[in-house]
Amino acid sequence: MNVMSDWIEIGRIEDIPRQGARVVATPAGNVAIFRTLNDEIFAVRDLCPHKGGPLSQGIVCGKRVACPLHNWVIDLASGDAAPPDEGRTACFPVKLENERLWLQLDRPE
């Protein structure tokens, strides 16, 4: 597991559409990498806390995504479902450095 504690290069910001997402496939399931309108980047597990919908396929507004299955709205920074729904999906550290996106997988927040 040592390897996993490192920052992994996952691609360039242009590879992800604005107000959209792409996934990083891992043995433990997909991690969704979001890019907001203002080019902020967030990484959350691609699994809605409600019924496991793929959040990466949802509509991105501000720093939130609406799950494509039943429209739960998930905050990308905290992973929390918008009230009154209750639930949380794991977030991962992600950063933009030297034009490259880096993801850390072993420390979900």
């Binding site: 992994i8 990083v24 496939a25 043995p27």
Partner: peptide, 11 residues
């Protein structure tokens, strides 16, 4: 086709 592919595969 890239829109349908993962950004990257890990592990």
């Amino acid at each position: 086709r890239q829109h349908f592919e993962p950004l990257r595969k890990v592990g």
